[in-house]
Design a protein around this nucleic acid. Structure first.
Lengths: 187, 187
DNA sequence: ATTGGCATGTAACCAGTTACATGATTCC
DNA sequence: GGAATCATGTAACTGGTTACATGCCAAT
């Protein structure tokens, strides 16, 4: 019932297919929740059974047909109830940080290599987030946007995603420098 | 097999009981992995069965006896193998961000209240991390520490934890200001 | 021709969470 | 007297991951 709320919140932006949701919850886009496609399809079924979302079949000529989901009034209520509840502390789990923690017993350049890869991914994510932000702002200043927009939630969370990736980039780069300075002979 | 690596990396710091590990993996301390006590006890058993850790019974007079675990050579090898592997992208899952995403359909001060609580928690975490950092540095400058210390992994990950919490604090405070400025009448 | 994107699904498995149980000791 | 800390564990359940299956269309 944890993914469920994230889906409800995402569907506030409008109806969406399972496939589309899978893209917004994937590692390259999601800035506050990640989930695999199978998880989404399964959860959407349950949510439909519970009356939180409604599916509508969209027949497409040159692509496979798709089921498009939208919130029901019950779904909005459920989301409202969740938002009022206390949030449990966020879960942190990062393999890369575990590897860095263990860097002293391996060749540092191995771990440094992983950091280089993640640095590239973080840069892509940052770019994507900044594009999204520009699209949301649509030329307006942040202040005027925050006063006039009907929906600010997505902008608030996006800003957290942007600073998170910026900090990632800086930390990755710093850690790479530190490890490379130590040199490969360190066992 | 994901928690397993985090345990191995933690045991590099020296032997530890299940109870002690539970504290270092709990929400108020862990800066790169969180896990509940039950998860740890179960995983430690499996790791013992697989020969990655060895337990030694420590009999205590005025406290319950405890089993203290330490890495075996096979455990060190397993950790080394993991550190050489590619890391899978980190999982992000945060209820609070989902609530902020959905802020537009609830009373903003409800969500703002949750943010206030998490702001306090983030401040505590930051303090704890900074104390830990000072203990690690032990008076030395960062540069000299990084050149002389035999283990730098824990310091590298700790620095990520510190900047993460600092960014959290700033974002929480900003989001609270934005939501409070909108006022409670916004439905 | 074959890769990649669109689109959905079943099934099995593994990992994480919650509830409960025990029992002594120390601190307020 | 009651709560918090130390210390470990069983059992049931929920949620997340991986493997596999299908099939068409567009582009290289």
């Amino acid at each position: 019932m944890a993914l469920r709320n994230a889906i409800l919140a995402t569907l506030l932006d409008g109806e969406s297919s399972g496939y589309d949701l899978a893209k917004t919850f994937d590692g390259s886009i999601a800035n506050f929740w990640m989930a695999a496609p199978q998880q989404l399809y399964r959860e959407l079924e349950r949510m439909e059974a519970d009356g939180l979302v409604e599916a509508r079949l969209v027949e497409q000529a040159k692509r496979p047909n798709k089921r498009v989901f939208q919130l029901t009034p019950a779904g909005v209520d459920a989301l409202r109830a969740f938002a009022a509840q206390e949030a449990k502390p966020s879960a942190i789990r990062d393999d890369l940080l575990v590897q860095v923690q263990a860097v002293d017993i391996v060749e540092p350049d191995l771990v440094s290599g992983h950091l280089v890869e993640r640095l590239a991914i973080a840069r892509e994510r940052l770019q994507r987030f900044e594009q999204l932000r520009d699209r949301l702002l649509d030329g307006r200043e942040e202040d005027s946007f925050l006063h006039t927009a009907t929906r600010i939630g997505p902008y608030l969370t996006l800003r957290r995603g942007i600073t998170f990736e910026r900090e990632n980039i800086e930390w990755f780069a710093w850690a790479i420098r530190v490890l490379d300075a130590r040199g490969p002979a360190c066992d």
